[in-house]
Design a protein around this nucleic acid. Sequence first.
DNA 1: CTGAAAGCGCTTACAG
DNA 2: CTGAAAGCGCTTACAG
Lengths: 349, 349
Amino acid sequence: MEERSGPSTIVDVARAAGVSVATVSRALRGLDRVSPDTREKVRRVADELHYVASPTATSLASGRTRIVGVIVPFVSRWYFASMVSAIGKALRERDYQVLLFDLEQEVFGERLTLTRTMLWKRVDGVISINIPMSPEELELLSGLHVPVVSVGHHLDDRSSVGIDDSAAARTAVAHLLELGHRDIGYIGAAIESSALNETPRSRMAAAIAAMAAAGAPVRPEWVLSSDWTAENARDLAHRLLTAGGDRPTAIVCGSDEMAFGVHVAAQELGMRVPVELSIVGIDDHPLAGLFSLTTVRQDIRGQADQAVTLLLDELVTAGNVGSHSIDEDRRLTVATELVVRGSTAAIRR
Amino acid sequence: MEERSGPSTIVDVARAAGVSVATVSRALRGLDRVSPDTREKVRRVADELHYVASPTATSLASGRTRIVGVIVPFVSRWYFASMVSAIGKALRERDYQVLLFDLEQEVFGERLTLTRTMLWKRVDGVISINIPMSPEELELLSGLHVPVVSVGHHLDDRSSVGIDDSAAARTAVAHLLELGHRDIGYIGAAIESSALNETPRSRMAAAIAAMAAAGAPVRPEWVLSSDWTAENARDLAHRLLTAGGDRPTAIVCGSDEMAFGVHVAAQELGMRVPVELSIVGIDDHPLAGLFSLTTVRQDIRGQADQAVTLLLDELVTAGNVGSHSIDEDRRLTVATELVVRGSTAAIRR
DNA sequence: CTGAAAGCGCTTACAG
DNA sequence: CTGAAAGCGCTTACAG
């Protein structure tokens, strides 16, 4: 009769199936206490009416949105983009949606209000990708009263997943040491603006420690701070390689993108890679193959899956939110792996 | 009295301010017909109570979610990631949120259900970035009954914004012709799997037409199909440059990433760029500077802003959704611009 | 196994 | 300018 009166609601289905809305709700959500016949009929009717429950009404009634807020400093860089992609995939498989918060070009201070107002009552949980936070920001996050897991660094005493940055850097250095290198440079120390970020510091510190432990010289002028872009790394490498006096025979970079920059610098200076200069990165960026870059691969998918699992676990264990049991190990580490390509070689005697 | 009884609701504010919830609603949303004093008081009380309206309740009551679904084939590639970022920024400035749908690694057929179930009643509008759609998918999108604007290609007779792919390709070719090149190759024709996508075809066709129009030879064996990755382009360039017989003196690539691949191939073959080979791309990718790549820049931010403006316009004009007035020009084109760097040079006589 | 009813937290005519 | 009340479309005890 009433064919076209807008999208159908649960009431339409109930009426057409000759049952109550409560029964429709139960039947469609697969709850128990519904007779097989009823369930079958409700399903059929719902199908015919192209019924899909209104997520908005469901959220209001149930108190859960089935949406997870994903916060990234910038989606336009490879690590973040692929992490967002992988997290979205994992979330979707569990019937959750991604509300994306890209802080790119946001003024630092404004993130506060942003976080609170925009996530407030909107999401069941939050995944924060490599975003260092001030105490105030952390407090605001807490005020959301939803589980939070961070990826790529630790936030407070919350759950987190990431690679072991120190181990990754050690792996890179160890590879060079095995090839006989002793004069090793490092590009990718933290610059001030990212001072809150652990990753640059951890990788650099571990690289230096590994060199020192092997008795290799650690020269301060060979350890360079970078903004982590390829171009900046190219400039730094230029300077490092043309400074006069000794040169390193190998350079470890905190990320593949910086390694690309070093690679280009070497070429511009007419140095052959790896014969005259070995280069190692960290990441295994999609373009690493193009540069034949030896690198320490990090498993994005693995990290994303773990992060989603952790978050959904906490979602289930909800109610006692806020009272994290720190004793359980909620800081997961996903293994990295050395990928040897053509940018490293044994040192020439 | 009742300090900690969970986040405050509109009722709490009304009670504390001594007015009705209707008045709170009006006051806080800046509607007219509220006395300045009342408004002021409500605002103050709301502030004290840290009140933020529940988006979920607002949506159910108002019928608008203030969420826009953004669909991309893969977020992990530069063009898409930066487009998502820019769109998110533009949307946020207008108080809309982004629900991200990343189709990466989804089976083509499954996108259908996905689209319907996940966007259904969830979003006020949709922005689709470069996703070719089958008639069935288009129909499903229509069934959502919300405005849709596409970026990077046309969808049906809906609104869209993008660059003029043909013009971009012509610009690239014209630049080479001016430098005296006549033996020009092209990498980036469409491969079968992306057959539905206009961009590769438009760029290639326009490039070829421009060459032909200038009386330059168009050799089928110099026009290569690619999957648009850097590595594939490298392989193709290798073959093209080592095929024996004549070689092109310049290569136009459908994207910067492919140009990177060609650049590396040239180097591997010991050809100097640009002296022995000129290379032009399209995009102005963040790494273009690293490769000193001459390219045709596309304005991501500009396109994103236009797309958001178009969409929000249609949102306002809603009610008559479905009856698009095709007469208005709803296909916006954002200008491109030649950026000359070091990968192109006048041909040697 | 099923239904009636309250409730989720807002917005929106409708009165006044 | 302001309030009482209905309504948005579900879920969830509570009865039966």
